[in-house]
Protein backbone atom coordinates (compact mmCIF):
# COMPACT_ATOMS: atom_id res chain seq x y z
CA UNK A 1 0.00 0.00 0.00
CA UNK A 2 2.80 2.39 0.72
CA UNK A 3 4.66 1.61 -2.45
CA UNK A 4 5.51 4.76 -4.33
CA UNK A 5 4.80 5.16 -7.93
CA UNK A 6 5.42 7.64 -10.62
CA UNK A 7 2.74 8.12 -13.25
CA UNK A 8 4.48 8.20 -16.55
CA UNK A 9 6.74 5.38 -15.50
CA UNK A 10 4.09 2.81 -14.73
CA UNK A 11 5.18 0.11 -12.35
CA UNK A 12 2.04 -1.90 -12.17
CA UNK A 13 3.84 -4.88 -10.70
CA UNK A 14 0.72 -6.95 -10.42
CA UNK A 15 -0.30 -6.57 -13.99
CA UNK A 16 2.57 -5.80 -16.25
CA UNK A 17 3.62 -9.29 -17.26
CA UNK A 18 0.07 -10.36 -17.93
CA UNK A 19 -0.82 -7.13 -19.61
CA UNK A 20 2.53 -6.16 -20.99
CA UNK A 21 1.07 -5.40 -24.38
CA UNK A 22 -0.61 -2.31 -23.04
CA UNK A 23 0.85 0.96 -24.04
CA UNK A 24 1.90 3.01 -21.10
CA UNK A 25 -0.22 6.01 -20.35
CA UNK A 26 1.89 8.94 -19.39
CA UNK A 27 1.01 12.41 -18.37
CA UNK A 28 -0.12 13.09 -21.90
CA UNK A 29 -3.30 12.01 -23.53
CA UNK A 30 -2.52 9.15 -25.88
CA UNK A 31 -4.18 5.90 -25.06
CA UNK A 32 -4.30 2.58 -26.75
CA UNK A 33 -7.70 1.91 -28.11
CA UNK A 34 -8.44 -1.66 -28.95
CA UNK A 35 -10.97 -4.36 -28.55
CA UNK A 36 -10.46 -6.47 -25.48
CA UNK A 37 -11.92 -8.02 -22.42
CA UNK A 38 -12.17 -6.49 -19.01
CA UNK A 39 -8.60 -5.99 -17.90
CA UNK A 40 -8.83 -6.82 -14.24
CA UNK A 41 -10.64 -10.13 -14.50
CA UNK A 42 -10.79 -12.02 -11.25
CA UNK A 43 -9.18 -15.37 -10.99
CA UNK A 44 -12.24 -17.58 -10.72
CA UNK A 45 -11.49 -19.35 -7.45
CA UNK A 46 -10.07 -16.49 -5.37
CA UNK A 47 -12.65 -13.89 -6.25
CA UNK A 48 -12.11 -10.48 -7.71
CA UNK A 49 -8.70 -8.80 -7.80
CA UNK A 50 -8.07 -6.06 -5.31
CA UNK A 51 -6.75 -3.08 -7.20
CA UNK A 52 -3.99 -1.73 -5.01
CA UNK A 53 -4.07 1.75 -3.58
CA UNK A 54 -1.94 4.43 -5.24
CA UNK A 55 -0.94 2.17 -8.09
CA UNK A 56 -1.76 2.29 -11.74
CA UNK A 57 -4.04 -0.52 -12.83
CA UNK A 58 -5.21 -1.29 -16.33
CA UNK A 59 -8.92 -0.91 -16.99
CA UNK A 60 -11.13 -0.96 -20.03
CA UNK A 61 -13.74 1.66 -20.73
CA UNK A 62 -16.26 1.74 -23.51
CA UNK A 63 -16.63 5.35 -24.54
CA UNK A 64 -18.61 6.57 -27.53
CA UNK A 65 -18.52 3.12 -29.02
CA UNK A 66 -14.76 2.71 -28.77
CA UNK A 67 -12.85 0.56 -26.35
CA UNK A 68 -10.19 2.37 -24.39
CA UNK A 69 -7.62 0.48 -22.37
CA UNK A 70 -5.77 2.64 -19.95
CA UNK A 71 -4.04 2.78 -16.61
CA UNK A 72 -5.73 4.42 -13.65
CA UNK A 73 -5.45 4.74 -9.91
CA UNK A 74 -8.52 3.33 -8.14
CA UNK A 75 -9.41 6.80 -6.85
CA UNK A 76 -9.49 8.50 -10.23
CA UNK A 77 -12.92 9.72 -11.25
CA UNK A 78 -14.38 9.00 -14.64
CA UNK A 79 -14.38 12.77 -15.11
CA UNK A 80 -10.64 13.05 -14.57
CA UNK A 81 -9.95 10.19 -16.93
CA UNK A 82 -12.20 11.56 -19.66
CA UNK A 83 -10.81 15.07 -19.53
CA UNK A 84 -7.23 14.85 -18.43
CA UNK A 85 -6.22 11.44 -19.75
CA UNK A 86 -8.35 10.95 -22.84
CA UNK A 87 -8.67 14.59 -23.85
CA UNK A 88 -12.45 14.33 -24.10
CA UNK A 89 -12.90 17.84 -22.75
CA UNK A 90 -16.48 18.19 -23.95
CA UNK A 91 -17.30 16.88 -20.48
CA UNK A 92 -16.77 19.83 -18.15
CA UNK A 93 -15.71 20.11 -14.54
CA UNK A 94 -17.72 22.37 -12.25
CA UNK A 95 -17.70 21.10 -8.69
CA UNK A 96 -16.48 17.50 -8.46
CA UNK A 97 -19.17 16.99 -5.81
CA UNK A 98 -22.24 15.99 -7.82
CA UNK A 99 -23.74 19.42 -7.34
CA UNK A 100 -23.74 21.05 -10.78
CA UNK A 101 -24.11 18.60 -13.66
CA UNK A 102 -21.41 20.07 -15.92
CA UNK A 103 -19.84 16.60 -16.12
CA UNK A 104 -23.04 14.79 -17.11
CA UNK A 105 -22.43 11.79 -19.36
CA UNK A 106 -24.66 8.89 -20.28
CA UNK A 107 -23.95 5.50 -18.80
CA UNK A 108 -26.07 2.88 -20.49
CA UNK A 109 -28.31 5.71 -21.72
CA UNK A 110 -28.84 7.22 -18.27
CA UNK A 111 -27.44 10.64 -17.33
CA UNK A 112 -24.83 10.38 -14.58
CA UNK A 113 -22.26 12.65 -13.02
CA UNK A 114 -18.82 11.61 -14.18
CA UNK A 115 -17.33 13.34 -11.12
CA UNK A 116 -19.19 11.04 -8.75
CA UNK A 117 -18.28 7.92 -10.69
CA UNK A 118 -14.99 6.13 -10.16
CA UNK A 119 -13.33 5.22 -13.43
CA UNK A 120 -12.92 1.63 -12.20
CA UNK A 121 -16.63 1.54 -11.46
CA UNK A 122 -17.52 2.68 -14.98
CA UNK A 123 -16.13 -0.52 -16.46
CA UNK A 124 -18.76 -2.55 -18.23
CA UNK A 125 -21.00 0.40 -19.00
CA UNK A 126 -21.49 2.09 -22.33
CA UNK A 127 -20.37 5.65 -21.76
CA UNK A 128 -21.51 8.44 -24.05
CA UNK A 129 -20.00 11.91 -23.86
CA UNK A 130 -20.83 15.07 -25.76
CA UNK A 131 -18.35 14.05 -28.44
CA UNK A 132 -20.33 10.86 -28.91
CA UNK A 133 -23.41 12.78 -30.04
CA UNK A 134 -21.62 14.15 -33.09
CA UNK A 135 -22.23 12.50 -36.44
CA UNK A 136 -18.77 13.00 -37.83
CA UNK A 137 -18.46 16.76 -37.88
CA UNK A 138 -22.20 17.27 -37.92
CA UNK A 139 -24.11 18.25 -34.84
CA UNK A 140 -26.56 15.82 -33.29
CA UNK A 141 -30.20 16.78 -32.93
CA UNK A 142 -29.98 18.03 -29.37
CA UNK A 143 -26.90 20.06 -30.18
CA UNK A 144 -28.60 21.59 -33.21
CA UNK A 145 -31.60 22.54 -31.10
CA UNK A 146 -29.35 24.29 -28.57
CA UNK A 147 -27.89 26.36 -31.41
CA UNK A 148 -31.29 27.33 -32.77
CA UNK A 149 -32.76 28.36 -29.42
CA UNK A 150 -29.58 30.03 -28.12
CA UNK A 151 -29.85 27.72 -25.14
CA UNK A 152 -26.66 28.87 -23.45
CA UNK A 153 -24.53 31.86 -22.72
CA UNK A 154 -20.99 31.09 -21.58
CA UNK A 155 -21.46 27.52 -22.78
CA UNK A 156 -19.68 25.81 -19.93
CA UNK A 157 -22.66 23.96 -18.47
CA UNK A 158 -23.92 23.30 -21.99
CA UNK A 159 -22.37 19.89 -22.64
CA UNK A 160 -23.93 18.63 -19.41
CA UNK A 161 -27.29 20.17 -20.30
CA UNK A 162 -27.14 18.59 -23.74
CA UNK A 163 -26.36 15.19 -22.25
CA UNK A 164 -29.22 15.55 -19.77
CA UNK A 165 -31.61 16.33 -22.65
CA UNK A 166 -30.19 13.44 -24.68
CA UNK A 167 -30.78 11.09 -21.75
CA UNK A 168 -34.26 12.46 -21.22
CA UNK A 169 -35.22 11.99 -24.86
CA UNK A 170 -33.84 8.46 -24.98
CA UNK A 171 -36.25 7.58 -22.15
CA UNK A 172 -39.09 9.93 -23.11
CA UNK A 173 -39.04 10.79 -26.83
CA UNK A 174 -42.01 13.12 -26.41
CA UNK A 175 -41.50 14.72 -23.03
CA UNK A 176 -44.04 17.00 -21.41
CA UNK A 177 -42.99 20.46 -20.27
CA UNK A 178 -42.89 19.14 -16.72
CA UNK A 179 -40.73 16.19 -17.69
CA UNK A 180 -38.34 18.55 -19.45
CA UNK A 181 -37.98 20.76 -16.40
CA UNK A 182 -37.59 17.75 -14.17
CA UNK A 183 -35.10 16.14 -16.54
CA UNK A 184 -32.94 19.25 -16.43
CA UNK A 185 -33.18 19.75 -12.68
CA UNK A 186 -29.80 18.12 -12.15
CA UNK A 187 -27.87 20.68 -14.17
CA UNK A 188 -27.05 24.16 -12.93
CA UNK A 189 -26.69 27.06 -15.34
CA UNK A 190 -25.26 30.15 -13.67
CA UNK A 191 -25.87 32.28 -16.76
CA UNK A 192 -29.52 31.34 -16.27
CA UNK A 193 -30.36 30.00 -19.71
CA UNK A 194 -32.92 27.52 -18.38
CA UNK A 195 -35.92 28.88 -20.24
CA UNK A 196 -34.10 28.64 -23.55
CA UNK A 197 -32.82 25.20 -22.61
CA UNK A 198 -36.41 24.04 -22.08
CA UNK A 199 -37.25 25.31 -25.54
CA UNK A 200 -34.22 23.55 -26.98
CA UNK A 201 -35.29 20.30 -25.35
CA UNK A 202 -38.69 20.60 -26.99
CA UNK A 203 -37.10 21.45 -30.31
CA UNK A 204 -34.65 18.57 -29.96
CA UNK A 205 -37.52 16.15 -29.47
CA UNK A 206 -38.95 17.42 -32.77
CA UNK A 207 -35.63 17.15 -34.57
CA UNK A 208 -35.13 13.62 -33.31
CA UNK A 209 -38.53 12.67 -34.62
CA UNK A 210 -37.47 14.06 -37.97
CA UNK A 211 -39.70 17.12 -37.82
Amino acid sequence: MTQKHEPGECRCSRGLTRRGFLSTVGAGVAVASAAGKLAAQPAASQGADVLPSAEMTPITLNINGRTHRLLVEPRWSLLFVLRERLGLTGTKVGCERGECGACTVLMDDLPRYACMTLAVEAQGSEITTLEGLMRGEELGGVQQAFVEEDAFQCGYCTPGQIMAVEGLLRAHPEPSQEEIQMGLSGNLCRCGAYVHIFKAAGRAAQLKRGQ
Binding site: A27, R83, T89, G90, E131, M134, V147, D150, Y156, T158
Partner: peptide, 28 residues
Protein backbone atom coordinates in the same frame (compact mmCIF):
# COMPACT_ATOMS: atom_id res chain seq x y z
CA UNK B 1 -32.09 39.96 -36.21
CA UNK B 2 -32.07 36.70 -34.31
CA UNK B 3 -29.11 35.02 -35.91
CA UNK B 4 -27.54 32.04 -34.10
CA UNK B 5 -24.15 32.70 -32.57
CA UNK B 6 -21.10 32.56 -34.77
CA UNK B 7 -19.40 30.27 -32.26
CA UNK B 8 -22.44 28.15 -31.42
CA UNK B 9 -21.02 25.09 -33.16
CA UNK B 10 -17.87 25.16 -31.06
CA UNK B 11 -19.79 25.60 -27.85
CA UNK B 12 -22.23 22.73 -28.41
CA UNK B 13 -19.89 20.29 -30.13
CA UNK B 14 -17.23 20.35 -27.43
CA UNK B 15 -14.55 21.67 -29.80
CA UNK B 16 -14.39 25.01 -27.97
CA UNK B 17 -11.29 24.83 -25.81
CA UNK B 18 -11.92 26.61 -22.53
CA UNK B 19 -8.84 27.37 -20.44
CA UNK B 20 -9.68 24.53 -18.07
CA UNK B 21 -9.74 22.20 -21.10
CA UNK B 22 -6.18 23.00 -22.14
CA UNK B 23 -3.93 19.95 -22.18
CA UNK B 24 -0.25 20.44 -22.87
CA UNK B 25 2.46 17.84 -23.27
CA UNK B 26 4.19 17.22 -19.96
CA UNK B 27 1.63 19.30 -18.09
CA UNK B 28 1.33 18.89 -14.31
Amino acid sequence: KGIPRVDAYERVSGTAVYPSDVLLPDMI
